[in-house]
Design a protein around this nucleic acid. Structure first.
Lengths: 250, 250
DNA sequence: CTAAAAAACACGATCGTTCATTTTTTGAAC
DNA sequence: GTTCAAAAAATGAACGATCGTGTTTTTTAG
């Protein structure tokens, strides 16, 4: 009984999904037709239906596949990055770490910009039913594998007191939004300064909100451990200088 | 030469645009057809073409109209609110003011949630060509009528040093994003706590990034002027305590 | 060889748009 | 205030293209 090998089947399915993804993200779900998908996937329109019963099913499969592959792998990458950096650092919420996190997020946005378009399609044409879950309790998504490290942060007497998971999630969302606006919304340096500068300033703001600050002594760069010198670049027209958190003496 | 009065023409155009807007934002541009628009606008399909030459032109007119009316009026409202509150306050970036700003932004998002869907349609199906301008140099959009006030903030020796326009734009984008995720992306308390709490914490973070903090003396609530007592609610499981900026003594 | 997969074609529905026709509106004449 | 011819506006059927999908035939893999 001749039946296509699993390898061929998977390859064909992926070929169709990639074509569909490419078109969906450029013209929306309803703006894309099966014939164009088939042409881009280099097969006939009828062949599509041997792999997917309907166009809707194809869309759902596209969403599901990309969530399983791209997003999942990227989330794992970011989480493992967080686990590695946050574990090794004496102070997880250091400037150095947050700048690294920003780079990870930037890659996520720029390498897979179309994925986010798929989400916008879902918001408009499907009430975001396929993506809403990824926004349920964002801080919780950082708890593993960072729970222990975040608890230690919270126990630090210099800590500002806000739930570290909340802080991490907030910074994550803020940086993510920044790059999404830059990449997808046509905001060309929408905060008026270059990307690097903008991110650095946002981290400045976040850091100083995280750490209590005392008012004496020399000042290493905010939040950076092990490098006592200041890390500010003079590209910021107005320099901000803060110190790593020593416990405030009340 | 009988021609329809301007009033009638405007009314009909608006009727069509409102129907189109309602359908576009629920099923996308390509997912909406002229017949449905005509039916919702209570006229024939042919009548649409008396007022709009093509479906694309109708879409552009919808976008343009809503930018002219809703958004423009809301931006004016937020700007005049900022002008009023920022002018009257001794310290513009006070907790009180930022909480008020958050309320304004919340209204903007919740009262006109569909408008943002229109933007997502534009991102996917039109490369955001109709909305990109609103992201060009966001800080600049706050300069008027706040320029003087922001300059004064920057001149304050306690100020962190970051361009106040940048700070305001960043906080604005952050709060806007928060409510958009809540309202449109199905994030049900996506930061794990109630809206009020989340906003308060974000303001905590932002405030402490704005003001340098010294380490002695009694501590009024962060950024709030004129009320020396602490403003923290105990609803935050972990209290954060910071002080308004007295100049750091180096 | 045989059954599944691919291709080609066909079908009915629906798309944006046009058009002939009818209805409504208009401003002037009365 | 009424009438009236003219013209704009509204209508709904119709058009050609295209949609998602079903069917039929050909190709192909096991």
């Amino acid at each position: 009984m001749p039946k296509l090998g699993k390898h061929r089947v998977d390859q064909n399915r992926r070929q169709i999904e990639e074509a569909a993804f490419s078109l969906f993200t450029r013209q929306g779900f309803h703006g894309t037709n099966i014939r164009d998908i088939a042409e881009l996937a280099q097969m006939s329109t009828g062949a599509i239906y041997t792999y997917f019963p309907t166009k809707d099913a194809l869309y759902e499969s596209v969403v599901h596949s990309y969530q399983k592959s791209v997003v999942s792998s990227y989330q794992k990458r970011i989480r493992s990055w967080l686990a590695r950096e946050f574990q090794s650092a004496a102070e997880p919420f250091s400037r150095h770490n947050l700048e690294g996190l920003a780079r990870e997020i930037r890659s996520f946005v720029y390498d897979h910009a179309d994925y986010w378009k798929l989400m916008y399609i879902d918001v408009v044409e499907f009430n975001n039913q396929h993506f809403a879950h990824s926004f349920h309790n964002v801080p919780e998504q950082f708890n593993w594998p960072l729970d222990g490290q975040l608890k230690k942060v919270a126990a630090n007497p210099s800590w500002c007191g806000i739930d570290p998971g909340f802080v991490l999630a907030t910074i994550y969302m803020q940086i993510l939004t920044y790059f999404l606006v830059e990449r997808l919304f046509g905001g060309e340096q929408h905060l008026g300064v270059a990307e690097d500068t903008a991110i650095r300033r946002m981290i400045d703001m976040a850091l100083n909100g995280i750490w209590r600050i005392d008012g004496a002594g020399p000042r290493p760069a905010a939040g950076r451990q092990g490098s006592p010198g200041r890390s500010r670049k003079k590209s910021d027209n107005l320099a901000v200088k803060v110190r790593t958190g020593k416990k405030i003496s009340r």
